[in-house]
Amino acid sequence: MSHKQPELEKSLRRKIDASSFASLRSGCTLVDIRETEDWTYATYVDKDESKKEIRAKFLVGADGKTGFVRKNYLEPKGIRLLWAESTKYQETWVALNWKITLPTPKTHPAFPLWRLGYTPEQVYDLFFPSEFRSLCNPDRPAVCGRFGPASDTLWRFEFVVSRGEDAAEMARPEKIDEVVIPYLTHPGSRYGLVSNIAKDMTTYLLG
């Protein structure tokens, strides 16, 4: 399933607003959880700094591994996230989201594929195929692919920060170019051309 988070959230909010069985309380901070034999109670502070309580048969803690439910409620009870030591994985990745603007013969007249009859849409499909791909590079694993509605032309690229590298440095535009551009470089022979369609061409596609 491919979706764009802001649009998904808008849709969920509309459904909640229209439902008589749910309500959304934004700008609140959870401060306490307690249980009785019949109910679970959650105490929270709202955006007006008023403390309030809500009760339910169940409480779902979907606030992440460092959220209040795990750190302040489950872990004090001895319920902890256990690592599978043989497969423990904890790496830093750089995640990039791009909105791709399709080049045209007018905006980029030197792009070599125009004279071969390619359209902007065909160029986009060639350089940014619809499948989400895992790039099993042993030196630097990466993933990439389109996401969201097709009409939005959104593309995501993620790559791992190697041991000894600085994450902030690897997120600089120059370092991003070093990692991403090779994957967007096509051999000229693929199109019957002498020169590769390399950085100077792929930057047309990335803006």
Score class of each variant (00 low, 15 high):
Phe111Tyr: 15
Ala167Tyr: 04
Asp200Asn: 13
Val179Cys: 05
Asp166Ala: 09
Ser50Leu: 12
Pro173Trp: 01
Thr29Asp: 01
Phe127Asn: 00
Tyr89Ile: 00
Pro76Arg: 08
Val31Asp: 04
Gly148Leu: 02
Lys10Pro: 01
Asp17Asn: 12
Trp98Cys: 08
Glu174Tyr: 08
Gly148Ser: 08
Glu75Asn: 12
Glu35Ser: 12
Pro112Trp: 03
His186Pro: 00
Ile197Lys: 03
Arg190Trp: 11
Met201Leu: 09
Leu113Lys: 02
Ser189Leu: 08
Ala150Gly: 07
Ser162Cys: 13
Ile79Pro: 00
Val60Pro: 00
Thr185Val: 11
Glu131Ser: 12
Val179Ile: 15
Thr87Tyr: 02
Phe111Glu: 04
Arg13Cys: 10
Val180Ala: 03
Thr101Ser: 12
Gly27Trp: 02
Lys57Gln: 11
Pro112Ser: 13
Tyr191Asp: 07
Gly67Glu: 05
Ala42Leu: 11
Asp139His: 14
Val94Ala: 07
Asp125Tyr: 06
Ser26Lys: 14
Cys144Ser: 15
Pro187Cys: 10
Leu116Gln: 13
Ile54Cys: 12
Val45Phe: 05
Gly188Tyr: 04
Pro182His: 09
Val161Gln: 01
Arg115Asp: 14
Lys51Leu: 13
Ile176Trp: 01
Glu165Leu: 02
Asn196Gln: 08
Glu75His: 06
Leu135Trp: 12
Leu135Glu: 13
Glu37Asn: 12
Lys99Glu: 14
Leu154His: 06
Ala168Gly: 03
Ser130Gln: 12
Asn137Val: 06
Asp177His: 07
Glu49Ser: 15
Ser20Val: 04
Val161Ile: 12
Glu7Met: 11
Phe159Lys: 01
His108Tyr: 10
Arg172Asp: 06
Leu184Asn: 02
Ala56Lys: 07
Thr119Tyr: 07
Trp93Lys: 03
Asp125Cys: 05
Gly64Thr: 10
Glu158Pro: 01
Ala56Asn: 11
Tyr44Glu: 02
Ser189Cys: 08
Val194Pro: 00
Val160Cys: 04
Ala167Gly: 02
Phe147Asp: 02
Gly188Lys: 04
Lys71Ser: 11
Cys28Pro: 00
Ile197Ser: 04
Trp39Gly: 02
Val45Ile: 15
Phe157His: 00
Glu9Met: 11
